[in-house]
Each structure stands twice: as C-alpha cells, then as structure tokens.
Nucleic acid binder design. Structure first.
Lengths: 341, 341
DNA sequence: TCGTTTGGCCCAAACGTTTGGGTATCATGC
DNA sequence: GCATGATACCCAAACGTTTGGGCCAAACGA
C-alpha cells in the first residue's frame, strides 16, 4: 500500500533516497534476474526492492515505451462488442493478454470497411505492438495493406487469405449440423447464411450444403439467404424463407441469434419449434440452452479462440513463424430439432 | 496515405526536411489556432502541413504523454463484457470517447472485489487520465480509496455513495413494472432481485416492492430471491420461487437474462408464459422482442448511459463540478404479460 | 532618428526510462 | 608486486514531445 497521494514516484525518487544512480535502480527492478544480480550487491538489491514497494513505485509506461519502442499494447478490432460471440472471444484475448503482461485496446468497427480503416489507423497511432482482427472481410485487400506495413497481426473468428488466423472449423460445424438434420430425415432445408463477407457464414454454409449434396440433396439457391448475425436479421431472413409455397422442414442458421429471430418468425407462422420445424443455430451462446425451446446448436470454442489468437500474436511479435489454427466444433442436440423430450 | 513503410517519421524528420526547428513544427501542428498563427508565417504553416501528411506524420503518443503528463486514456472496468448490457454501455463510452479524442481500456472484473482492485491498479499503472466503473459495489469502500488518490472517476449503470454516476432511474423502472402488473390484477408476485451488491437490482426491487406496498400488498421476503444477472441464474432463482406451494402469478426479473432463465423454469413447470404466468424483464435487450413469447421489459438507455458517463468524466477531468444523472426508463409491454395478441 | 513593437522563428530543458559503456575498488594468482 | 578479473556501481545519451523563454530583423510610432 502506498501512503503517498499524488506523488509521482520515479526511479529518480528511489535513487536519490538511496544515494544510488537511477540506472542501478532500473537494472535491479526491471532487468532479467541474471543481469540484476550483477547490477548491485545483494544488500543493495534488497534496499531498492524494499523502498520501491514501500513507496509503491510503478514504472511510467510512456517513458518505457518511448525508450524501448515497445508499448506492450495490442489493438483488437471487432465488429461489435455487444455481440456476445465477439465479446466472449475478446474476453479470451484479454485474459491471455493479462497473463503476458499486455494490455488491449478494443474497438468496434461495425463491419464497415471505412470505420475499420479509420479505427485501425487510430489504434496504430497509439503505437500498439500488434493487432487482432475479429472483423476480417473474406476479401483480404485491406489486410494486405496492413501486412505491407510490417505490423504483426492475427485474425480470430474469421479467416481471410493466408493470414494467420484462429477460427472454429466452421466447415466441419456446417457438416455436423447437416448430418444431424439428415439423420432426422429432413430433406427440405434452408440456410440463414449470415453476412456474405464473413468466412464464418461462408464456411458453415458450405459445410452444410456440401454434406447435403453428398447425400444427394441439392439445396436450391433461393433456400440460402444472407442476413445479419442478429435476431432481427434472422427474423427477416426467415420470413423470406417461410413466405414461399414450399416451407422447409428445417432451418440452419449460422448464428444463434439469427436462429432466435428465425424461431420468432416461425412461431408467427403458427409453426411449433422442434415439431413442425427444426432449427439449428451456431456458437452455443449461453442463451441457447435456456430458450423456451432449447436450441440445438454447434458449439464453437469462443473464449479459447481468443486465447489462442493472442498467443499466436505473441509468437508472431517475437518473430516466430506461426500457423493458423482451426478449433473443433461440437454439436449440441436440444429440443429445437428433436421436439419436446 | 503514407508510402513509407517502417519509417518512424517524427517532428525532427519534418523539421530537418524543411530546415526548421522541431519546436516550430510542433507548434504549428498541435498548438491551438491562435498560438500556431504566431508560431510561423502562413507560408511556413502550409509547407509544414503539406509535408506532414505527405509523410503521414503521427505524433508519438508516448512522447506526448511523457511530456504533458496526460495520456488521453480512460480506463473502463466492467463486470463482464459478454453481458450485453455492459457491452452496450461500453459501446456508448467508446463512441463518446472517440469524439473527444480519447482512447479506452476496458477490462473485466467479474464482480470479484479482488480482481476489481488488481485491474484498477493495472489500469492506473497505465497512467489513465480517468476511470469509469461499471461494477461499483453498493458499499463504496473501495471507491473511497480511489477518490482519496485524486483520480477522477465516474460510475455508470450502478451508483454508490455520493460518487458521480450515470444510471437508469432504476427505482422508477421498478415502479413501472409494478404498476403494469398491478393494472393486470396480479397480486401474488415475486422478484428475481439480482446480485445483492448491485444498486441496479436493489433499486429496481425497491421501486417494485414500494409500489406494491402503496397498493396495500406486502410482498413477503421469501418471494424476493437474489440471483446472478444471467439466464442460468434466473432459472435457478425461479425454480426456488416455483417450488413453493403458492406459485406467483407474475415474476419481475431485474434483468432480461434472468427473465429468460425464469421463463425456462416456468415452462419446465408446465406454465404458459403470458397466460399462466406473467414475466417482466429489465433493460429491453435486443433479444427481448424476438423471444418466442416476446418479453415485457423496462427499457434502460444503455448506450446513452455510456455516452453520458464519458461526458461526465471529461468534465470532471477538466476540473468542473458534476452531478449524477438518472435516465428515464420506459416500459415495453409485450406478450409475456398480456398473453398472445 | 531612435526606441518599441511584432512577426517569425530558434534554444534548451524537461518528462522517466533503458542501456552500452565506463571506472574505482578489491581480492586473486603467480 | 603486478597484471587479471570480479564486483558494484556510475555516466550519459537517447527515445519524441512540449513549452517558457530567447533573439533578430523589419515595421512602426513619435
């Protein structure tokens, strides 16, 4: 506990009080053990350490960053933090960052390329040591520019180009959903495919469609509709699907929230979820299991993706070679596809 | 657009290229209009500006912060970002911060006092100019310590002591919920009151209970149960309420997610939401309207709370006197209390 | 004509660190 | 008795800004 109030205690404060030079104090407090040993005698080290935490010394990060040209900051760009998926991924990032002594700047880009650019510049202006993008567009033009500037970065949640990324194996997730619905005998199915620029939606849809194709069932293009990754988006998309003459017996939404929207739309059409129509979501957000009709969904390891993304970035910042990772999804079967227990 | 790659372009770069002194360049680029006018001739100002954005000059924030002792950083502490309520508040904060040229550090404290302390120290170590707490405990002991250190801060979402805070008028929100249920004739009601240390839950519950008392109805203590602000928490709490002999005809949950959990529990008990049992939530999160049975809830201006919180902090950092703000809630009536349309 | 002002710029110190070099002292080996 | 090598430090420059105070020349006022 420091009893001082507004005293900016610096290395100089300590050095003067101990009759030492600031460089000596600096080495003792911050250098690697091997170096700090030869920096001062055991007794001196003790004295320094003692006074340092008596006065509650905290190194000034601006001075350190200025001198070392490293900020120990990483910038995180996400579409929106109020999307629980991204928020959870970010929690993983932050958790891992703290373990590495790094701090994070997060910022919302709303999936608007212009904002994305502006916020990236802003974050770069803060001299971050690396970046994590959770909002990569499938066309990686923008990222190529960043790469050219030599700033280390990784992608999470979505992948793009050959940039290092930590994602869920979304294609496999799509397959899991399809296999499940196939096993229940659904042949007339539809997909809420998410935003067309997000690899998550693209891959999940592809895995789903391919699996149906493998089973000899072609899903017609009009049964695959794009929609925002949220409940209102899912509702609108589902309404399109339910408006036609041939109503699908199952809907695969590439996102739990879109699924919830779809459920709302289906109910408005007088359909019972899990009996009249099956719905599968994606991500297994905490709500899925708590819904009135619990939602069958493909679990993606969101927090873990964040953690691994940060780790990958750390290695990249150290100059190591890194490889993208694809984390395994898991199917969670619930009443929205199997009907009441 | 800067074509340079890894060129750290500094004031010196510009000054040398123009044959000027760095101080002149500095004044031209950063001083207030009135000062920059007398810093150099119109022609020189032009030359400097031109070269600056040709080379893509960006001031080094560490150097600036070191020199000015201001970081233009604010720290934001929240229980968890994966709670959409806090995430949305944070979006408001970030939005407003960007408008003021400030950057934000957010961090999760999981409502654990120990983590709260540790993360606050961490953020303070980063030399933020101010703090926003979204995780204030009703007993404000910890905050008193921060105040004593002279760090400007404001609270959002929850209030505590007399510290400046931007909250929803939660008491009034509780009243709205109660008036609504009273008007529907509900006399046997129960409350999912949230965490006992959060002013949000406390005030909402108080407003609700007082309004019932005004109507001559005392809600017995065993009908008021505390629970976490999430769906599983709400489920557990609701199960307690539904286990008794006298089942309430309506439940007021101080949070939409708790309400969703309660809905799940009620359904498990074979109750139809909106007909057998009414449920009211709080916050009007985007999901509320999309639920299979749309949720009646009290809307709180989350994003606006964030924006105002940041504004309040800015004024505080300028040394102005500020006052707490209470934002008006609004009742959103839906099928979970009125039954199918 | 000779101050005085003002326009336009430069000087230098300071913010708090880190780090590649000293240097003085002392013990050791021979 | 004298290099040799530790040991335990100190020195000083540098990172990129900001900012109070110069200084010189031209314009101005009387």
């Amino acid at each position: 506990m420091n009893t001082e109030n507004t005293s900016p205690v610096t290395l100089r404060t300590l050095a003067d009080r101990l009759g030492l030079h600031v460089s000596t104090v600096s080495r003792v407090l911050h250098a690697k053990p091997d170096e700090s040993l030869r920096a001062a005698s055991g007794a001196t080290v003790e004295r320094i350490r003692k006074l340092a935490d008596e006065l509650g010394y905290q190194p000034n990060p601006h001075a350190t960053s200025l001198r070392t040209r490293r900020s120990n900051l990483v910038g995180v760009l996400v579409p929106r933090l109020s999307d629980i998926v991204l928020a959870t991924i970010y929690e993983g990032i932050e958790e891992a960052a703290a373990e590495h002594g790094l701090s994070t700047f997060v910022t919302n880009t709303r999936d608007v390329p212009e904002v994305q650019r502006a916020r990236t510049e802003m974050v770069l202006g803060r001299r971050v040591d690396g970046l994590i993008f959770g909002d990569a567009y499938a066309d990686a033009a923008f990222l190529a520019g960043i790469a050219a500037r030599g700033v280390p970065f990784v992608l999470v949640s979505r992948h793009a180009g050959t940039h290092p990324a930590v994602t869920c194996d979304d294609y496999q997730g799509g397959r899991l959903a399809a296999e499940h619905l196939l096993s229940l005998g659904h042949r007339e199915v539809a997909v809420l495919a998410g935003e067309p620029y997000a690899s998550t939606g693209i891959d999940r849809t592809a895995g789903f469609v391919d699996t149906y194709a493998d089973a000899g069932i072609e899903i017609p293009p009009e049964k695959i509709v794009h929609s925002p990754f949220d409940a209102p988006g899912g509702r609108v998309g589902a309404e399109r699907l339910l408006a036609g003459r041939s109503i699908p017996s199952a809907i695969f939404a590439v996102n739990d929230f879109a699924a919830i929207g779809a459920i709302g739309a289906a109910r408005d059409h007088g359909l019972q979820i899990g009996t009249d129509i099956a719905v599968v979501g994606f991500n297994d957000t905490p709500l899925a299991a708590e819904l009135p009709v619990p939602l069958t969904t493909v679990r993606s390891p969101m927090r873990e993706m964040g953690r691994r993304g940060l780790h990958l970035l750390v290695r990249l910042m150290r100059g190591e070679q890194v490889e993208s990772q694809r984390l395994a999804p898991e199917l969670m079967v619930r009443a929205s596809t199997t009907g009441p227990a």
